[in-house]
């Protein structure tokens, strides 16, 4: 019989080993700590209006996206011959007008920030370990910033005469 009284490794307590090793005052059962208790010592610096702003932004950008995205899909995929008409000339023709430039720019920013924030909630809700959560968010933010910047650059510097 082992005299080891810790149960941390095996999970099988000495109680099973028979008499003489039962838990008592001198040999207490292991304490089970609740994960991440919110105690008086937990910092209170987590308040602020960011989450409220993010929540409102999801709803407001969603409303605008209904018009932008459905309009976009209609123009690109349904009207005037559908997908078959899409080509360099079609894109060049549309981006010649500031109206479509602004439309696409707005759609790019709103969809990216909306989708990015949506995925941030998904990560917050599903990632179980702090490190996993942190790195997934870093990956998300990098991808979002990269896509938004690249898209913006293309819309503003698009050259219809490029060869």
């Amino acid at each position: 019989m082992s005299s080891d009284t810790t149960t941390a490794t095996s999970g099988i307590g000495p109680v099973e080993g028979g008499a003489g090793t039962a838990y008592g005052v001198d040999n207490p059962a292991p304490v089970i700590e609740a994960p991440r208790k919110r105690t008086a010592k937990t910092p209170r610096s987590t308040r602020g209006n960011f989450e409220m702003a993010a929540w409102l932004f999801m709803r407001l950008s969603g409303i605008v996206l209904v018009v932008l995205v459905l309009g976009h899909l209609l123009i690109q995929l349904v009207l005037d011959g559908g997908v078959s008409k899409i080509g360099f000339a079609f894109v060049a023709g549309r981006w010649a007008s500031p109206f479509w430039q602004i439309w696409d720019l707005l759609m790019l920013w709103l969809a990216m920030l909306h989708g990015g924030n949506g995925l941030r909630t998904v990560i917050n809700d599903y990632a179980e370990r702090d490190m996993t959560r942190f790195w997934l968010k870093m990956l998300l933010y990098t991808a979002t910033v990269f896509t938004v910047l690249l898209g913006t650059l293309v819309i503003f510097t698009f050259d219809p005469n490029i060869r």
Binding site: T46, R47, G48, N49, F50, E51, M52, A54, W55
Partner: peptide, 8 residues
Amino acid sequence: NDKDGVWR
């Protein structure tokens, strides 16, 4: 209005 408040 906390990060872990109603907005979650």
